[in-house]
Structures are given as C-alpha cells and as structure tokens.
Design a protein around this nucleic acid. Sequence first.
DNA 1: CGAACTTTTGATATCACTCAAGGGACGTGG
DNA 2: CCACGTCCCTTGAGTGATATCAAAAGTTCG
Lengths: 245, 245
Amino acid sequence: MNAHLDLSNTFIRKLDAFVPLSDADKAHLAQITAKPRVVETRTDLIREGDAPDGVFLILEGFACRYKLRASGARHITAYLLPGDLGDVDAPLLSRMDHAIGTLTPCRVVRLEPAVIEDLLQNHPRIARALRIGTLVDEATLREWLVNVGCRSAVERIAHLLCELLLRLQVVGLASADRYALPLTQLDLADTTGLSNVHVNRSLQELRRRGLILQKSRTLEILDLPSLKGVAEFKPNYLHLEPRAA
Amino acid sequence: MNAHLDLSNTFIRKLDAFVPLSDADKAHLAQITAKPRVVETRTDLIREGDAPDGVFLILEGFACRYKLRASGARHITAYLLPGDLGDVDAPLLSRMDHAIGTLTPCRVVRLEPAVIEDLLQNHPRIARALRIGTLVDEATLREWLVNVGCRSAVERIAHLLCELLLRLQVVGLASADRYALPLTQLDLADTTGLSNVHVNRSLQELRRRGLILQKSRTLEILDLPSLKGVAEFKPNYLHLEPRAA
DNA sequence: CGAACTTTTGATATCACTCAAGGGACGTGG
DNA sequence: CCACGTCCCTTGAGTGATATCAAAAGTTCG
C-alpha cells in the first residue's frame, strides 16, 4: 500500500501543497494516474475545434496551451508543468478554443469526465485542491498578461524564470536555485511575445549581469533577489502560502 | 410574479444565454440581485491583498480587474460588463492577487459565499451556467494575452471593439452595429498594453479607414466584416453558440 | 560524420513610446 | 450666461526598444 503513496507523483505533490490530503486520497490519486502514456516532443494532445473529452494531466515533461494565428504565428498562453492538469470543467464546453501540445517528451494521463466528476463529488479535499488549482491557473494567466502588457523584454524573461523556479520547486523538480529548463528560445519567444532573436539577447543580458547561468539545458540562478528585483516578481499570484483553515 | 422575471436584469440574461433557465431559476436570481448598490466611477470594490468575501456582480456599468506595478502603471486584465460576475470560487483563496474597480458608475451586488454555495449546490442549471461563465472568462483572458502578445496596435483595438460588441449584445446593450462605450482612451491603453497616445492614433486610423465612427461615447461599427478582418477576430472563445445538450 | 535544429551575431528597419503643448467638451459656480 | 477648472482627446517632434533578415557557429543525435 505504501508503495502507492508514490512520492514521485507530481500531481499528488501539487494538490497536497494546496490542501493536505489523506493517505486514502493519495492512494486514490495514485491509482487513477497509474498508467500514463508517453507522448513525444511537439505533439498535440488536443487541437482547437476538437470536442474536449476528459482532461489531460501532465506527470512528466513540459506541455503548453497555445493558439495559432492565420499567419502561423504561435502564442503560448500557459505552461503545463509536471503535476499540472487541464481545466476540470472543460467538458462543459463543446469545442476547444485553443490547443494543448507537448514542448518536450511527456508522460500524460487522460482523466475521463466520470473520473473527474467522482473526484469533485466524492473527494472533498481533492475537489478543493482542484478548484484552487484552477484559480491559480487563472491568476497565472493574468500575471502573464501583465508581463507581456507592460514589462520590457529583460523583465519578462526574468519574471518567467522566477515563476518557473517556484512552480517546479512545488513538485520537487527545482532546488533552491536551479532547475532543468528544456524550452528552446523560440518557445520562450512565443510565450513572452518577443522575437527569438530578442529572447537570445535578453538572456545574454541576464548572464552578463551575473544573474543566471545556463549549461546544457539547466538553468542556475546566481542571484535570485536581483532576478526578482529586475522582474518585480511578487509570488502572491501562485498562492503557495499555507491557507487559513 | 412575472414582474420578478426582470428582463432588464443583465445577470439573468447572461446566464440564460449559456443555459436556458426555468422561471423559478430566474425568479430566484431576480430575488438575490434585487438590492444593488450604486458605486461611482473609479472606485475599488476590492484591492490586491484584501481577503475576498463574497463575489461581486455587476448589473450596470463597466468595471474591471486590474493590477498595479510599483511604478504606478495599471494593467487591466478583464472587463466586468453588466451581467458579469467575479470568480465564484474566489473565496477559496485567502488574498486577492488583483484588484477590482469600477470604470464608470455601476450598480453592484455583493453575493455572500453562502448564497453562491447555495446556487452551486441546489440550482443545477444556474450552477452549470456559472461554471461555463468561469471558463469563458478564462478563455477571454487567453485571447487578451494573444491580443497583446502578437497583434499590432490597430489590430488590438479592433479586436477589443469586436469582443465588446458581442458581449454587450448578449445582455441586450448593443444593437447589430452600435453600443455605448464609456471607456477613456487611457482605459483602452491600460487594457491593450499601448500608450494612450498610440490608442488615439489607432482609433483615428480605424475611423480613417471607415470602419468605425465615434460620437458622444457611442461607438458605431460601419463595416463589421472588415473590422473583424483587421483583428482576425474569431468569436469561438466566447462560446456563444448554443451547446449540444 | 552528416543532417537538423538551436543559438548567436550583425545590420537595418519600424512600430510604438515619451514628452510637451494645444484644443475640446463638460460641469460648476459666480 | 459667462468664466473657469478639469479631464480628455489630439497633434508634433524626437527617441528608443524590439522586429526582421540573413548568415555563421554551435549542439544533438542517429
């Protein structure tokens, strides 16, 4: 039984950070996420216009929500990191208004609508954690809008790097100052509304100032206070503080 | 009794467009929204850092969600138009990560958490409409992110004007090609991530091309197909099509 | 070892910003 | 009814941040 309380399960870790779960809760979550499928890089899980059927859960790897313009330009509107789940209420809508695709190889589970319904109806702590997760996703979207709407290129990149640090720490995929960052500069460009060339120059600027170090897809943050300062990063929107009961 | 099925109640009209409501549903909604309070222009309903207590419903006027930067810069992340409601789950979080304030004089109702809870638990059609409303709010946020992230100034403004037309039509506040637009150019600037000067020039450009006409706070759209074309406006994210049962 | 992808660099172009001042519109009080 | 203040819109000139284009250098992986 204890083997089922899988500490490597990022989904459980994330929900548990929002609302402390019972062992039974964890065992149940371990069971319904037991059979992930492997999806390779740059693969769509669902496309704009498709009927949503169930909800995708990312257990490993980076995926994203994105929209395409007629010109072919892509804008990434959210990252789905390990432990992240699509919209639990998505099946209420008849058509997807955006696509979800992988940015790296991923382990993914599709949760059936009935399974989601059961979690929401019969597992109050899990339901609460899922609802909070949705609110945080929305708050993150707002923060991204502010990021693109009124920060300079260097500030945007710095902000994004700070956010990723905290979100990856929650699921145990970042140390105090370092994490694996498998995104390309083009991915970062499509996220921040910049050109890939300018992302490159902004990263150089952060390195030049001694704030970060990049080596073989790993990001090391050399001076987190300064990086946060550059980005004017306030983590309140991630709602990671323990909540009042 | 029929007097209670208040057709002028924008909230009822909006929810009814998502999910057809029964007369009892409508009467109940009319009752809990019967005592709005009047709030004057540029007044905060709740500020960043406050504990959310209940949810605000806008019955008349324009309000918005916004965030402030340390510099004092404001970014508007959403409009709350007549019929729009704040996040039904917001009380799950201990602190607001953004503020909500009026942009014009408004009629506002604060719905108590217990009232919301009752709607979600005991009024299935209303609950469904509220959940869909939340999803549409999120989809709108994504579209705004794309708007700011990869459209030019003229395109952004055109897109916003198209969106407002459809959203106001749902609650009966826009005709086929015209609505009252009480926002200042500074409001539009803080919404689109542009300077007020550039908003001014972009509006002039749309007028020059014969797409819109502005007269005493009223916007008339002279050529909707072209305006949509400029914006590359696809209304699917508003999910106004009737849903399959 | 070669192919495909990603990062980096340089040169040039452009969109949007800032600053500053003038012109309307509207309301209020004399 | 006029005078004035305030807020908003408009205009011009100059600047700056970021985009685009094109090519070279580096990396990864079969």
